[in-house]
Computed example of a mutant assay.
Amino acid sequence: MAGDSESNGNHVLNVNLDGANHNPPPPVQKPKQEPSLFVSVPFLQKLIAEVVGTYFVIFAGCGAVVVNLAMDKVVTSPGISITWGLVVMVMVYSVGHISGAHFNPAVTIAFATTKRFPWKQVPPYIVAQVIGSTLANGTLRLMFSGKQNHFAGTMPAGSDMQSFVIEFIITFYLMFVVSGVATDNRAIGELAGLAVGSTVLLNVLFAGPVSGASMNPARSLGPAIVHRQFKGLWIYIVSPILGAISGALVYNTIRFTDKPLPEITKSASFLKGAGRSGSTSTN
């Protein structure tokens, strides 16, 4: 038996009848140390994706605001809403598989609160998002100077309380949708970008004239830093974070069910129902 164990290459402790141990015990292997968070190449790739993704989201969205103000309302309010929705959708599909396409400190904090994102990665993500937003607004300020230099940030059009409440509601709505399409495997994942972009478009369309429809502390911090205008900024930091956390928690509350998966997916999407029977069902 000892000869067989040695010939097949297995590391077996062989003991003779006299109790003499001729093979030393195998060395104890130390556990492999994981690379540090800040030197991990995949994590750095995620941070770069967040910087680039946030940059393009803010550059296009705030760019639409600046062009509209500088070019005699040529973009129009609906056009600004469409721009925000489209750029969010495009960037979700572009880098969502790399970094999760947060682009928003409120979303990152909400994911961490519901244990779907590690807390230790939250500060670097937020820094990356604020950097992307600040660089985007810095680029716009360099491009549009003089009479074309306009503040593309968010400020309350009415009372602070009015803007606080509406920012809470629309961010709640946004995070509720994000939780549904991006974290629930019963949803159609391919439509996540379309759903999130459409939600942003809808929110900006009706809430933009009231509060600016930020839903994103980085979106408001970037222009505030570049233009040094901090009036009402606390609203766009506190309210979206509270709204996003609430939206994620509420979706988590309704996520759990005792129904079997086939029964859930049978009516989980009207698109699936239409594909089978040609009509939607409320059952």
Rank of each mutant, 00 (worst) to 15 (best):
L69D: 09
G96K: 04
K231C: 01
Q162F: 00
L37S: 09
T183G: 02
I235M: 10
N216V: 06
N203E: 12
G19V: 08
V196F: 02
G275M: 15
K73D: 12
T171F: 01
V181I: 06
I98K: 08
S159V: 06
N21S: 09
H150Q: 04
F117Q: 12
M89P: 07
H11Q: 12
I254Q: 12
A248N: 04
Y93E: 07
Y93T: 04
L17R: 14
P35L: 00
M215Y: 06
S81K: 06
V28C: 01
H227P: 04
K266M: 12
G197D: 01
N23S: 07
V196C: 02
V130P: 10
I264F: 07
F117D: 10
L205E: 05
Q121N: 12
D184R: 09
M161E: 02
F43C: 06
S99E: 01
S239P: 12
I245G: 05
I109S: 07
R276T: 13
L233W: 00
A64S: 14
I188R: 15
G193T: 04
T183S: 08
F164N: 03
M161V: 11
T114Q: 12
N252Q: 14
A49E: 02
A2F: 08
Q45C: 12
K147T: 14
G3M: 04
L17Y: 08
V127P: 05
I241W: 00
G19W: 06
I188M: 13
I237D: 02
L47M: 13
V210Y: 01
Y93S: 07
Q148N: 14
S179A: 13
L201A: 13
M71T: 14
F111G: 05
A20Q: 15
G146Q: 07
I169S: 02
I245C: 11
S269Y: 03
S267K: 14
A274Y: 15
V28R: 11
M155Q: 14
T134W: 07
G278W: 11
G132T: 06
G146E: 02
P217N: 05
H11A: 10
L140G: 01
G153D: 04
Y93N: 13
V66H: 03
D4S: 09
I131G: 05
G158T: 13
G232L: 03
V210N: 07
G197I: 03
N16Y: 09
S246I: 04
P35W: 00
N14F: 06
L233Q: 09
I98Y: 02
Q29L: 11
A49Q: 07
S220I: 03
V52C: 06
K147F: 04
V127K: 05
L86D: 01
E167R: 09
L174E: 03
M89N: 10
T183K: 08
